[in-house]
Design a binder for these strands. Structure first.
Lengths: 249, 249
DNA sequence: CTGTTAATTTATCGACCGATAAATTTAAAC
DNA sequence: GTTTAAATTTATCGGTCGATAAATTAACAG
């Protein structure tokens, strides 16, 4: 892997000049856009097109969606692969919120609360049809940025979850063991799969996402404490019993 | 969805006649194969090719891998889509083991043991590069057989897990609530994601699959019993009872 | 060996793909 | 209004795709 990626690289629209002539507003009758705006439109529409049909979707269809002709693409991107790379960056890099890094490590709050806040926010960002489909498409394609992101999840999220759990449980601090990391993957993958079912399989999921997360965290934290051999105050406030949406059971 | 699927439809090689002239063995110098054998080879190679490159992989590349020319494909399949459908059937239908259906419902054994046996066997069958990649490719494509399979998982596996858990925990029998099913999805998705990491992301996973499953089941069963409000004998290697915060509040 | 059947190949079609070059048109500068 | 730069379109190329028709050739029956 000889590519380098950086989270939140403000790579947005900093090409020719996105702020000179009062930045033309998106009038529908506008026949020409500023290069920055046009480029932005290409990336945006390409993201949703590739998300739906995969990266084999044609450049002509993309141009048609933008109301322009196909060769225009090549004034803004040297090749289709370059466009794809821009889409990658937009999807993978620009959605990571820096505060997530601190969120999990804030020991002034109980871990149960931190995890709930984190996964609520994190899934708000990535349980998005475009994001999750492009994530899997790029994974199937073996894109290096996908493997890079997986390692980010492991170091920035899962390792930290285990570390913070161990701390709150009064266990000695240490590098998380492989089996512990695997348990964190169980939680993370289980939550992630909620998004897969919703956006890839188009399958019905429990409507209230935050409730699904809350129950998942309860099960995980309760369960992990017995497996690890030490209990931790975990339960969130209300839920005493899992039940249907209207609580009838 | 106007298609119908059936698990374990012995759809293997029952086309023209797969058993007449002593069924030619796969000699490398053989220039012509029996139609049944040729068709079988097409499906097999197509499975691995589509698994690697997606269903957009070309028919010429497929033929090349078989050492034949591309138009020959069309003597065995009316169209590429028909070939893809055959691959679907092979991957989705022929791998389901009928005994799995009973495995989960055998109340003469504790649920912990049943779940371990089931997931060991189930993942032996589906944590296969071809299977899991075609599963996701077809999901992204919106193939009806994929949606059908998801519903099979829900009715044949997840619903049963909840029912059996409730039974063993002494809870009243009832249709699993949506939130309960969602928790079963958490376990199932978490385990499934192990295969995704391994075969889609090509990411390192805990070597001993059965240990990952064992830990996952410990966490799940211990956790769910505190969330459901009733404990169940779960641990594989008998350990003390967890200090479940006794869900009554 | 001869004749027949069918498995396989050769040749090719029309559609679509990503990409390039040249012509055109818009918009802003003067 | 004229000029000028560049955004956009028109035209087109070589390659690949799925698919069809016709020619070939291997295998078997007699």
């Amino acid at each position: 892997m000889d590519e380098e990626f950086k989270l939140n690289s403000i790579a947005a629209a900093d090409w020719p000049a996105a702020d000179e002539p009062a930045e033309q507003e998106a009038s529908s009758k506008q026949r020409r856009l500023s290069p920055a705006q046009r480029r932005e439109d290409f990336i945006r529409k390409a993201t949703s097109l590739f998300a739906e049909e995969g990266f084999d979707a044609g450049t002509r269809e993309l141009a048609r969606k933008l109301g322009v002709t196909q060769p225009l693409l090549y004034r803004y991107f040297p090749s289709k692969d370059d466009l794809i790379r821009e889409v990658y960056k937009r999807v993978y890099l620009d959605r990571w919120q820096p505060e997530w890094d601190d969120m999990l490590g804030d020991r002034s709050r109980p871990i149960r609360e931190r995890l709930q806040h984190f996964y609520d926010a994190y899934t708000d960002a990535i349980f998005d049809r475009d994001w999750i489909r492009i994530y899997l498409f790029s994974g199937l394609k073996g894109a290096s940025i996908n493997k890079w992101y997986v390692s980010i999840v492991e170091t920035r999220i899962l390792t930290r979850i285990i570390e913070e759990y161990r701390h709150e449980a009064g266990l000695p601090a240490q590098e998380p063991a492989a089996a512990e990391l695997e348990l964190a993957w169980l939680l993370h993958g289980g939550i992630f799969y909620y998004g897969v079912r919703k956006h890839i399989y188009d399958s019905p999921v429990l409507e209230q996402k935050n409730r699904a997360i809350s129950n998942a965290l309860d099960v995980f934290l309760e369960g992990i404490s017995s497996v690890f051999g030490t209990a931790v105050k975990t339960r969130s406030t209300a839920i005493r019993k899992v039940s249907g949406p209207d609580g009838q059971d």
